[in-house]
Each structure stands twice: as structure tokens, then as C-alpha cells.
């Protein structure tokens, strides 16, 4: 999360390069980055354009591909909003309150990050299937989660939670409480203070966390395929469609969707950079 902000650190133009190892470390960094990341990504980007831009456009403009992209990005956005709402409350509780078991709560937040996605997938599908603990209760009220687009949402919300909480927490704990005191002295109620003063101050950080949860959710595969119905046009996420295209020997089609997702990832990174710049200015 923090590396994004780096670009903004003012260039300290003192004596240039007094520390040794510049050539070696930069050389290795660039070499490793090129071999592991850039060359393979190049293979991805080139593949669908073998048939020109028209070919690329034909691949991604089919209703099924568009529907899967809409589902992946739409649900990821919704999941990120849910995560930022609850992430805000959880971070607030963790930073501001003291109660027994707080340490445990704090440690558990990172579970979705540490738990393999396949494990999360089978656990969530066991819970939310009509015969599972939560699914059985919901089905009694006519709500279906597993094997519907809402299953996608549940899995993405699970995956994204640590990103919003962990982005907010350090900023919140550093934020000075003077403004809140001032607001209170000026006659604002506590709720007014929270919603008018505290939350707006946290906005850039909140958005950063939301963007990270979104990026993670949009690309998520392992936990979703066990829980979503995988129906074309309804509950088929873009990464699954990549796999399906691959299994139909449609390499160009698979790569085309991959390129769209890669472009989205890149745009997200740029947006995160901008958000970090904003957050830095606000602090």
C-alpha cells in the first residue's frame, strides 16, 4: 500500500549517488522485473492483436464477454463499498475502543489474506449452499446466495476486507483528535462530528482502501468459482471466462479478456497513485 506514495517523496537533490551498489541493484531489479513480469505480460498483450485491433474488439465485444466483465467489475465495486463501510467501523472500533478480545479481532482481520482462496471457496460454498449453516437460514426467507451473482459478491467481500481495514487503521491511529474537540466545543453532537469531520478527513485513505479491495476483487478467481453458479451472462466472472476460452483452445480470446483486465489493473494503480498524492496533501 505504501509503495504507491513513494513517487511523491520530493527528490532530495543532494550529493548524487554517494551510496554504492546503484548499478548492481537497479540492474538486477530491472532484469528480474523484465524476465518475470514484463516479457510474459508482453506475450499476453501481443496475442489478441495478432488479428489487428478489429480482431481484438471482436473478441471482447461479444455479449458474453461484456457480461462477465460487467459482473467482475460491478460486483467488485459493490464488494469494495461494503468492505469500506464495515472496514471503517472495524478500524474505528480497533483504534478508538478498548475491550477484551480486541487483539484477537485485530489479528483475525488478515485471515482472508492468509487463507488460500480455494479453502475460502469450499468453506463459503459449504456455508451458503441451501443446505449450509447460513444458506439454510436465508433460503427460509427466500434468499439465495450460493450459485447466484450474490455468491460472487460474498466471496469478493470476504477477500477484500483486510485491504480497507489495514489501510485505514494506521492513518486513523495517527490522526489528531484536536479537531474533534474543536467541533464538540462548537456545539456539534458526536454523530455530527463523526460524519462531518472525521469521515471527510479520512476520505482519501478510505478511497485508497476501497480501490485496493476493488482491484483484488475484480481479479479474484479461486474462492468465487466454488460459490458462483458460473452461468454465462448471469454469474460467470471474467477470470473464469478466460479459463473457459483457454479450454476451448481460443488463446486469442482468452488473452483479449486478459488484456482488458490488465489494462484495468494498470488504471487502478494510476488511480491509487493519485489517491495517495491526495492523501499525502491532506495530511
Amino acid at each position: 500500500m505504501s509503495a504507491f506514495g513513494l513517487a511523491l517523496t520530493p527528490m532530495k537533490l543532494r550529493q548524487r549517488r554517494v551510496l554504492p551498489g546503484f548499478g548492481l541493484s537497479l540492474g538486477f531489479t530491472v532484469f528480474y522485473l523484465t524476465v518475470i513480469v514484463l516479457i510474459p505480460l508482453m506475450a499476453l498483450v501481443i496475442r489478441p492483436f495478432a488479428l489487428g485491433f478489429g480482431g481484438f474488439w471482436t473478441e471482447i465485444s461479444t455479449p458474453r464477454v461484456l457480461a462477465s466483465l460487467r459482473l467482475s467489475f460491478g460486483m467488485a465495486a459493490l464488494a469494495a463499498v461494503i468492505d469500506s463501510f464495515f472496514g471503517l467501523i472495524i478500524a474505528w472500533v480497533l483504534v478508538r475502543y478498548r475491550f477484551a478480545g480486541k487483539g484477537l479481532l485485530d489479528a483475525l482481520i488478515d485471515l482472508p489474506f492468509a487463507l488460500p482462496t480455494a479453502v475460502a471457496g469450499i468453506a463459503l460454498s459449504t456455508l451458503y449452499a441451501p443446505n449450509g449453516w447460513i444458506g439454510a437460514i436465508l433460503i427460509a426467507h427466500g434468499i439465495r446466495i450460493a450459485y447466484t451473482p450474490w455468491g460472487v459478491l460474498v466471496a469478493m467481500t470476504f477477500i477484500g476486507l483486510p485491504f480497507t481495514v489495514r489501510t485505514l487503521q494506521p492513518v486513523m491511529s495517527e490522526q489528531s483528535q484536536d479537531v474533534e474537540e474543536v467541533a464538540a466545543t462548537l456545539g456539534a453532537t458526536r454523530l455530527q462530528t463523526i460524519f462531518r469531520v472525521v469521515v471527510p478527513m479520512l476520505l482519501p485513505t478510505l478511497l485508497t482502501g476501497t480501490a485496493m479491495a476493488f482491484a483484488r476483487g475484480a481479479g479474484e478467481y479461486g474462492s468465487i468459482i466454488f460459490l458462483a453458479g458460473n452461468l454465462p451472462m448471469v454469474s460467470e466472472i471474467a477470470p473464469l471466462l478466460i479459463i473457459t476460452k483457454l479450454e476451448e483452445y481460443d488463446y486469442a480470446g482468452a488473452a483479449a479478456i486478459g488484456v482488458v483486465m490488465l489494462a484495468a489493473a494498470f488504471v487502478m494503480l494510476l488511480a491509487l497513485n493519485a489517491l495517495q498524492a491526495w492523501a499525502a496533501r491532506r495530511r
Binding site: 522485473l33 499476453l44 482462496t117 481479479g219 478466460i242 483457454l246 486478459g258 489493473a265 494503480l269
Partner: peptide
Amino acid sequence: LVTLIDLPFSVSPVVSGLIY
């Protein structure tokens, strides 16, 4: 450079397999 280093974080795992 830093943006490129961060890129794999937001790339879908499926895409990460596909490229190889």
C-alpha cells in the same frame, strides 16, 4: 519502476497463469 513492481498485485491470478 515502482508502479511496474506493484502491477502483479492487481493482476488477476488467472492472468498470471495465462501469461506463462
